[in-house]
């Protein structure tokens, strides 16, 4: 690992100031499960790090609000996953948390840090000698003609098809979450859907935060569809693995058995958290049935662009969305 200068911050304001003072390339360190890991691999080589893992004003969360749920960016994944109200009213959110990583990692990782988790593409993490535009711009993308089983069906470019690996953001994007940030220029908010970038021809740029900005809170508008929600995750083993495919579905069911509000996103298959409005549209107003669930899954994957080894994720994803629709509908208040 390269040497790095270390400072800590006690508040969010201090953190932003410390980050500015630490100079170009400085990074925020929270749980460390992504950044410190990549620093060990020398894929991340920040000259300075500002430790925010004990910033008290980022740590809380409140799921009792009437208009929105509020999550401090420093809250730990494990703690939020245990929240009783959230488990009851937004099972897709808690499932996206406890089905991620291991309990040890969830005890460490923060909600804000997790949003910016970087890809698990083996050509990215493998370092030299693999070509990777994300790691070394201009070097090429080894995955395009390589072992692309884990790679993206959506949002890829000729320069990068690395999957965004997070579960939490996939669930959040279905719920129209907003992200609050604090930076040298003050505070602002943006929709989570606009936090991540598609790779395009600059895959090294993964998010839209300005230099020096810190995520402070994640807010989720209250919705009755939360109760009727599910996050399903299909992996190469039963636990402690990243998604081959995942699906977040939240819906309400009307008195006549038809789907009312409907929110669907898919994970493990796209270069950023991937909401699928076409699937929502296909399901909205339809009676809950195997056929309508399947149709939603098919609509979700209609525009997929598979590579050499990942075409199976179209059918797998279609079925996973359909399963998630069934589970969510089973939970929905009628």
């Amino acid at each position: 690992m390269r040497p790095f200068a270390y400072t800590t911050a006690g508040t969010a304001v201090e953190a932003v100031a410390a980050l500015a003072a630490a100079g170009p390339g400085a990074r925020l360190l929270a749980g460390g499960t992504t950044l410190y890991d990549l620093m060990k691999l020398e894929i991340e080589t920040p000259p300075a790090v500002v430790d925010v893992h004990r910033v008290a004003d980022l740590a809380g969360f409140d799921t009792s609000g009437e208009r929105e749920l509020v999550f401090g960016a420093g809250a730990r994944m494990a703690d939020v996953a245990e929240d009783g109200r959230l488990r009851r009213d937004y099972p897709a959110l808690t499932e996206s948390l406890w089905r991620a990583a291991s309990q040890q990692l969830r005890n460490m990782a923060t909600l804000g840090g997790n949003l910016l988790q970087r890809t698990r593409c083996p050509y990215f993490r493998g370092g030299e000698p693999f070509a990777c535009n994300k790691r070394r711009p201009g070097s090429g993308c080894a995955a395009q003609e390589g072992l692309d089983r884990s790679h993206a069906l959506f949002g890829g470019s000729d320069d990068c098809i690395a999957v965004y690996p997070g579960d939490w953001a996939t669930a959040l994007v279905a719920f129209d979450a907003e992200v609050d940030v604090l930076g040298p220029g003050g505070a602002r908010s943006l929709p989570l859907a606009r936090l991540h970038r598609e790779p395009g021809d600059t895959p090294q740029l993964e998010h839209t935060l300005e230099p020096g900005e810190l995520i402070t809170r994640i807010r989720v508008p209250v919705t009755p569809a939360g109760r009727g929600s599910a996050y399903l995750k299909i992996r190469d083993r039963e636990s402690y693995a990243f998604a081959l495919v995942s699906a977040a579905v939240a819906l309400t069911v009307d008195g006549d058995g038809r789907v009312g509000e409907c929110r669907i996103a898919v994970g493990g298959v796209a270069t950023r958290p991937w909401r699928v409005p076409a699937a929502e549209q296909a399901l909205r107003g339809q009676p809950v049935s195997d056929a309508s669930a399947r149709a939603a899954g098919e609509a979700a994957f209609a525009g997929a662009r598979p590579g050499r080894h990942n075409a199976f994720k179209i059918e797998l994803g279609t079925r996973t969305v359909a399963d998630a629709v069934r589970v969510a509908a089973g939970r929905a208040v009628r």
Binding site: R120, P122, Y123, R125, G126, P129, F130, A142, E145, G146, L147, D236, R237, E238, S239, Y240, A241, F242
Partner: peptide
């Protein structure tokens, strides 16, 4: 059901050279 050393013939060696990418069974399996 799980284990295979994966090879990218353009590079040689083993591509999935970690305990994340070479999935040995976990307790839940």
């Amino acid at each position: 059901l799980r284990e295979a050393g994966e090879v990218d013939p353009r590079y040689g060696g083993w591509l999935n050279a970690s305990l994340e990418e070479y999935p040995v069974p976990v307790n839940a399996d």
